[in-house]
Write a protein that binds this DNA or RNA. Structure first.
Lengths: 199, 199
DNA sequence: AGACAATAATGAACGTTGTTCAGGAAATAA
DNA sequence: TTATTTCCTGAACAACGTTCATTATTGTCT
């Protein structure tokens, strides 16, 4: 067998990511323990460190999956033939739905922190493009004066604003937006932004 | 001496909060260790647990100080006689300045998480009111149709939007807003929101 | 002042983490 | 088969937050 070795290795990696994903979904990032993961994956504790450099790298792979699913969800949220404001509104509601329906995995995208001074690998950083990719086109229609880097930058700001509202509503330790009011507040924000942007 | 005992106790608490605050400012929440704190405060490891229930409670007191300073900074950012949009813009820029100038302590306000299911005490939750207190008046002028809880709720949304942009710019692991562009992006967001809100 | 009681501080020890590493098992090559 | 390379194992390690029996300190009463 030519690639039996590599196949087994990939199989182990996949089982570890599966187990970590399930644990995060069930108990959050704080509830993620190396010993639980390896027990679920059916391997020894040390095996985790033959497959990944450390736990942070494994979490990166879980987040990678979540980003892919989020990207697909956002793509599905937009209907063809919608005007730019309707697209923005649909994207925002799609984001809210995903966050509510995948709370702990979605939260892990933003609460996981690498040790200071250590950067995420480029392949993973690039995956975050799905967060703003779909905003660029409708924003460009509302703001024809923006192009290239400036347009991309403003799309990131629009995303960050919506994200901030969702994040604070779902994870705040102080007076938070009730969950049933979240879609309405996000809609109002996006409407105000798009109206203000279009002038 | 009547209250010598209590004075000493308060003195220890203060030294512990001082030490924890300095450690967070220097190395972030992740760099905060009980042994470092007690060494800096000049007491034994166990003393920390005679003054506070646990490390989380100590961090709460550090965050309490930060919130007070943030509230003062926001108050100082607003000049008398400004119109509602100018007030909103000034508050946003004040928030950006505080986050940049007190990065790790500011970040600790939002990255610190209590164990799941455990709520922050009421006295600390109430302190977060400074985040939205100053937004309510100018927002009420821009939106006379909003009152009471609805106005308060919308102010929280406006804060969360600005906060999201700042947070993502300063702590993002992916393509982030460059720091020198942050004030401009925040200004554009607030302007779009206030313009969209006004009519 | 002196003796007793109540309280607080000490630091060694505990349990739980992530991570490592010498040894053994398994797969490939000869 | 035998040799060699590769990977997996799980006991051991270091660092962490937290606890607790012991010691020291403070306040109170005679």
């Amino acid at each position: 067998m030519r690639n039996n070795r590599e196949e087994q290795r990939e199989g182990l990696k996949t089982r570890l990511i599966d187990a970590a994903e399930a644990r995060i979904a069930a108990a959050g990032l704080n509830g993620l323990k190396a010993r639980d993961i390896t027990a679920d994956a059916g391997c020894a504790l040390g095996a985790l460190y033959t497959a990944f450099d450390d736990l942070d790298r494994l979490i990166l792979h879980v987040n990678s999956r979540t980003l892919a699913r989020l990207g697909a969800a956002l793509q599905a949220a937009v209907l063809p033939g919608q005007g730019p404001r309707a697209v923005m509104a649909a994207l925002a509601q799609g984001y809210v739905s995903f966050a509510l329906g995948n709370f702990r995995l979605w939260a892990a995208l933003f609460t996981h922190r690498l040790p200071e001074g250590i950067e995420a690998p480029a392949w993973h950083r690039d995956e975050h493009a799905v967060l703003i990719a779909q905003i660029i086109a409708p924003l460009g229609q509302l703001r024809p004066d923006l192009e290239g880097a400036a347009l991309r930058q403003r799309a990131l700001t629009v995303f960050a604003a919506v994200h901030g509202v969702v994040m604070l509503a779902l994870t705040a330790r102080f007076v938070a937006t009730p969950r049933d009011q979240l879609p309405g507040e996000v809609a109002a924000l996006v409407e105000a932004m798009t109206r203000g942007l279009a002038e």
